[in-house]
Design a protein around this nucleic acid. Sequence first.
DNA 1: ATGGTAGAGGATCTA
Length: 255
Amino acid sequence: MKIASWNVNSIKVRLVQVLQWLETENPDVLALQELKCESQLFPVEAIQKLGYTYSCVNGQKTYNGVAIISKDKINHIVTPDMDEQHRIISAEINNINIINVYMPNGESTDSPKYQYKLTWLNYFKQYLSEQVKKHKKIIVLGDFNIAPEDQDVHDPLLWNEKVLCSTLERNAFQEMLQLGFIDSFRLFEQPPKSYSWWDYRMLGFRRNAGLRIDHILISQDLKNICQRSSIDKAPRKWERPSDHAPVIVEIMSKN
DNA sequence: ATGGTAGAGGATCTA
């Protein structure tokens, strides 16, 4: 079972790329973030034509918005948002609980948005702690807007204690792991300087000035059946790309 | 001191 996550930064603009990527990579499940569209405007038909019969959307106008599309049946859809910002959608597919998140960015550590992010992270940790009591097989994936370690940052000195890299955010990430999750990417040997997001500005991608802020966490029960975890940089080189690359995990078996 | 780019929506806000 191949499961992927991609912050598309507007599904309306990125639909062409998403369809192209689905055709080449053929994942069973794709979690999308930053749809920037209302749920009823999500392009279900075009996606269904590629065999993704099932989908669930938690959209909103202008900002945020998340969705899960799947070849296999989607059950128990929930959207446990903290407030009016639509950032979470969770569903069960093939007996695995998939929690798709778009975490707040925070803007900068002196911004009120940073305080909002910390509050939101606290809320989400609480939600996860409830989920681990209820389910054994859980995947938490999406745009975390946190680079967990210095090895996930192109220039750790430049980013030292900056938003996305600050100690409080990294602590929150570790506290999520301590609930019983593993950063699937680090289960395997990876190319050095692997990132998932590059700023559109200042030739970020060409300089590989990136951060690894998109993650796929798996619960302990999935560790031994996790086959692969990777970042696909290819779509970032395409015409009119998202600033994020898709991240992928492969789990053995369907049940 | 604050740019640089992209998307939404029609002036800024968010990232």
